[in-house]
Every structure is written in C-alpha cells, then in structure tokens.
Design a protein around this nucleic acid. Structure first.
Lengths: 110, 110
DNA sequence: TATCTTAATCGTAATATTGCGATTAAAACA
DNA sequence: TGTTTTAATCGCAATATTACGATTAAGATA
C-alpha cells in the first residue's frame, strides 16, 4: 500500500488532485512566483533564488513541466523557462469551478 | 532528506503549498464533492461512497479537518461533517490571488 | 581540440503518504 | 449490564516524495 487508488475515482477528481499536487510544494510555488516576477523568463538563476541544490530544482522544474504549468526553451546551452499561459488559465478554471461548486447552506448541521 | 525545507520559504508560499496538499488526493476531492452534494452533511456514509476502508477515510477526514476545509459535529454516536464556509472562501481567495498574479506577457521568450 | 558552463539524470538516503487490519472509545439500545 | 453501532487511533507494510552528491550530455568558448 501507499499507492493512491486513482482508478476508483473519476477523471475529474484525479485531474484536480494531480493539479493540486503540482503546486503542493513551497519550492514549486517559489519557482512559479519567480517566473511570474521576472516575466521575460530568465533561465537557470532560479537555482540562485532558491535555497536548494541544482538537481533538486531541476526535479521540481520537471514536475511543473509534466503538469504543464511551465515550458522550457533551449537557448544556447542554457534553458529558458516560463509559465505556460494556456495550462495556467485551464488550471485556474478547474480550481474555480471546484471552489464555486460550494454555496453555503443555512440548513447545514454544523 | 525527504523532508520539505519549509523554513526557507515565505509564509505565504508555505501556506499555499499546504493548502494545495490538502486537496492533492482524489479521495479528499471525492469527500469534498460528496459534502457539497448532500449539503446538509450526512455523516459516516462517506465511507459507503468511497472505495476505501473506514480507517483510511477517517485519516483523510482528519487531514481535511486539519487544513480547516471541513468541520465535524458530534451527533449521538455518529459524527457529522461539513464544509467550513470561512476557510473555504479563504482558500478560494488565496488561490485566486496566486493565479491572478500572472498576466501573460508578449515579450516572454517561450 | 580541451575546457568551461549549464542543466539533466542516476543513485541513494531520509522522510512522508497511503492504505488497512486490529483495536479502542463512546454513545445507543436491548 | 451486555451488545451493537460509529468513528477514532495504533501499528505496520507498501509506495511516493524530497533532497543532494556524483555523473553525464551538450553547447559555448578558449
């Protein structure tokens, strides 16, 4: 055990969970914060910004890329990362739909 | 290693990550979906709704309660859970602020 | 070509999460 | 009181995540 039973849940529930997981680490939030701040996406000085070693940052970048939140372009021997506009908006919509799905109800018991 | 280096990130970054982590599991999304659906929060039949054993569900409920997303009232020997309206709204605001913080920029390199 | 720079990948250790059987605690009920 | 119901907690096994040193691959540069 220890493995999530993804096949028993709906595709939407799994997607939402995966999406949340992608941003469920302060380093990944910090990376996204940085990419937003410097918006013309300077590359590997992300490593200088973060209190983490290069392989660790690389691993977090990979996860963000897998989630689709960022993309990277090769530029010489450096790599230039930035927010993926489309996925970003999509994520925002999915999360909004989820949170807007709840409307407080007076007859709730607690 | 293996432990997240929370102390090197800002409080906001950690809060956002913790928040995301709370909903980063399909079972927890499913629990929230269910609580939203039945809005007058029926209790432990959450277990019947989910493909998971009672202790597992109990553990997920505990995590959601820790995050503040749900609260529980004792009702006889059963316990009645429901969405915590205030935290829910707060989460929505925090996530919105994060996602709205990015505005697509033409001069992005990729 | 040899060297430097940049960033991915490999391998491994430490820790966290997920899941559940067994047990427990507390209230309901016979 | 003894039994049933409900849900938390304990203890453990399986797996996932986080972190990083060492290595590697590829382009830049001398």
């Amino acid at each position: 055990m220890g493995a999530t039973k993804t096949d028993h849940f709906t595709e939407r529930q799994n997607q939402l969970a995966t999406l949340a997981k992608a941003i469920a680490h302060p380093a990944r939030i910090a990376i996204l914060d940085y990419l937003i701040k410097v918006d013309s996406c300077i590359c590997g000085d992300i490593v200088n910004e973060l209190p983490l070693a290069q392989p660790t940052v690389s691993q977090h970048l990979k996860e963000l890329k897998n989630a689709g939140l960022i993309k990277g372009d090769i530029e010489g021997n450096a790599i230039c990362y930035c927010i993926d506009e489309n996925t970003w908006k999509q994520f925002q919509d999915i999360l909004n739909a989820f949170f807007n799905g709840y409307t407080p109800n007076a007859k709730s018991c607690c």
